[in-house]
Design a binder for these strands. Structure first.
Length: 581
RNA sequence: GUGCCUGUAGCUCAGCUGGAUAGAGCGUUUCCCUCCGAAGGAAAAGGUCGUUGGUUCAAUUCCAAUCAGGCACGCCA
């Protein structure tokens, strides 16, 4: 809707351009609502933003912008204020086209194709397949899935990917744990000290042991470890992965692809990655310096290793890729995995990791840069941890005592939608306090309720109008004359709806899903306010049985509002509620 | 020791590539249901945007120091 306005501003700016050193694109032009509505419907600060680059005075540029804006039919008036703000008022007729665009496009109103169907790989969750997903994974899963939805909105071809760490010591430990439970289930006695520090003693391993017996009976019981280990490794990974997929489904997350670390290694991708880096001169044998944080009496010792020169690509220190016993490090596997992604054709990648992985960001970015000759790029988003509270009191979790909360616990307790909302309603860099009691309260302590309530109220109006139907066909509303919507609350709502695609685009580009619930809360607030105005001012009621034309105009605004709320909730993976009773 | 993140109203948080008088909710105080859902709305009070410098027409936003809190840093995965 705003592209014509942006275009005119861009043309005005180019008038001052003296060199071709840079290009002014419409995306660079900021349009927003002034804090004070009396200044106008929208403003741009482009004259000031570009005055330095264009070497012109902001006022002169603003005058040129004004001249071009005035040539547009939808502009009522333009004024220049302060150091160079250009404020303008839109004609009533403009709102007709805004509402109609939403009525016609539906949830596609916020979509654009500015990313040209480019492929992008979003890797998230990637939990070790050694147990059920826990609460930390919940934020990861929701964050990753909403980012994926947003990226699709702006025209990316998104692959949602889960990397399975299905080899290494922790898998062997899992298999050994399974074997102990297997023995136990077959009547053998096991003692607590047989579970070493790195093993898994959770009850879920007992369940897997039963499944193992169902299929294999007691045939491993008296066999040596090298005979059962490979089979039990595979068996336990498969079982854990099945559970992980169920857990993810319970909060509405479906992956497009699962990629196995073992499969990558089998393809000799590690060797290939190493070759590639060697060709670039990024591999050498050396000794890493002692990390400063390690105290003197620690058992750290110098060791010669094969190293990746990641400092060349912005990392703090070079990274080991081969252990002294000759086997690969975990990072070597990651080099292989990211080379695999690059070879699959992804130039853009996103990774979602918990804040405790912050030390890993630079080396991953270095790896992608080095392996792709700087052609591919990975953006890592770290999210802070979630504290779980029970009515204000923190719930302590410990793996040892078995008092850790699983993702399934959370979903069972508060449901998919509340879980998802809580996980993305805050900036990813901010810790979340997730209170089980407050999360399901029906008040403003629970903002999701407020948004759902607005949606349900709109459905309620439609029910009253149609005698029972919670929706109205947009086609019945397109011809309504929306220029009669003149109350400041109505116009305020329309202005907010106008900017919805801007918010979606901004949230997607910044990889900041929390902007969506923030926006929806504002929409809900504007709507509730309008609703209550109708209580005292009967001329603002949505349904006026004596005036069909007026009623349709108002219902079209409601339908547009409903569409945008629904769209926003869809992006968040939350199901809108047609009634709350 | 180094790196990353956080610090905005009593509390929990927004604040979009620097923009005009810094915004919500909770809590507190006062109003608004014979009327489409009061699980709502209107209004008041509440701030030296951790501190100090710097960059410029303009800094909560950028830069540098500094204080406070969180996380991380070895051949773990």
């Amino acid at each position: 809707m705003l592209s014509a306005i942006r275009n005119q501003i861009a043309i005005a700016l180019r008038f001052f351009q003296q060199t071709d050193d840079y290009s002014i694109s419409c995306d660079d032009i900021c349009l927003d609502q002034p804090n004070d509505p009396s200044r106008g419907d929208l403003y741009t600060n482009a004259a000031m933003m570009f005055s330095k680059r264009l070497r012109g005075s902001p006022i002169k540029i603003a005058e040129k912008i004004k001249e071009h804006l005035c040539s547009l039919e939808v502009i009522e008036s333009v004024s220049i204020d302060g150091p160079g703000f250009v404020n303008f008022v839109l004609k009533n007729i403009f709102w007709n086209s805004v509402i109609n665009k939403i009525l016609i496009d539906g949830c596609d109103y916020s979509s654009c194709n500015c990313s040209n169907n480019e492929r992008i790989n979003v890797e998230f969750v990637s939990a070790n397949p050694t147990g059920p997903l826990h609460t930390g994974h919940a934020r990861n899963a929701v964050f990753g899935s909403v980012i994926s939805n947003l990226l699709e909105k702006i025209g990316y071809d998104v692959t949602r990917e889960f990397y399975i760490n299905d080899q290494g010591n922790q898998i062997k430990a899992l298999a050994r744990s399974l074997f102990l439970r297997y023995k136990e289930a077959l009547g053998g006695t096991i003692t607590a000290d047989q579970f070493t520090e790195d093993m898994y003693c959770g009850d879920y391993v007992k369940d897997t042991a039963k499944e193992l017996i169902d299929i294999y009976g007691d045939r491993f019981l008296n066999k040596s470890e090298d005979q059962w280990l490979p089979i039990l490794c595979k068996f336990s990974i498969d079982a854990m992965l099945r559970n992980i997929k169920l857990d993810l489904a319970s909060i509405g997350v479906v992956m497009d692809q699962y990629t196995s670390e073992a499969a990558i290694c089998k393809k000799h991708m590690v060797e290939e990655a190493l070759e590639k880096l060697k060709d670039n001169g990024d591999i050498y044998d050396g000794i890493l310096p002692r990390p400063k944080g390690i105290s003197e009496d620690d058992d750290w010792e110098e060791r010669p290793q094969t190293l990746f020169k990641s400092t060349k690509y912005g990392d703090d220190v070079d990274r080991a890729i081969r252990k002294s016993d000759g086997t690969w490090t975990y990072f070597a596997g990651d080099l292989a995995y990211h080379l695999d992604k690059i070879k699959r054709g992804y130039c853009k990648m996103v990774g979602v990791l918990g804040a405790d992985h912050n030390g890993y960001v630079k080396r991953l970015q270095a790896a992608v840069k080095a392996l792709s000759d700087d052609k591919a790029e990975i953006k890592i988003r770290l999210y802070q941890l979630v504290n779980f509270l029970e009515d204000g009191k923190p719930i302590k979790m410990s793996k040892r005592s078995g008092t850790f909360i699983t993702l399934k616990d959370v979903v069972n307790r508060v449901g998919k939608d509340v879980t998802r909302y809580m996980m993305i309603s805050r900036h990813h860099d901010v810790m979340i306090d997730f209170d089980f009691v407050k999360a399901v309260e029906c008040s403003m302590d629970n903002p999701l309720f407020y948004i759902q309530y607005a949606y349900a109220r709109i459905c309620s109006v439609f029910r009253n109008y149609t005698d029972g139907n919670t929706d109205i066909d947009s086609n019945l509303l397109i011809n309504a004359d929306k220029t009669s919507l003149k109350d400041e609350s109505e116009v305020g709502l329309m202005k907010a709806l106008l900017l919805w695609p801007e918010y979606v685009k901004g949230a997607a580009k910044a990889l900041e899903p929390h902007r969506i619930p923030t926006y929806l809360q504002n929409i809900a607030s504007l709507f509730h306010s309008l609703w209550n105005k109708g209580k005292t001012n009967t001329t603002l009621r949505f349904i006026d049985k004596t005036n069909e034309a007026e009623t349709k105009a108002r219902l079209s605004l409601l339908k547009a509002t409903k569409t945008v709320i629904e769209d926003g909730l869809n992006i968040m993976g939350i199901t809108p509620m047609v009634e709350m009773r």
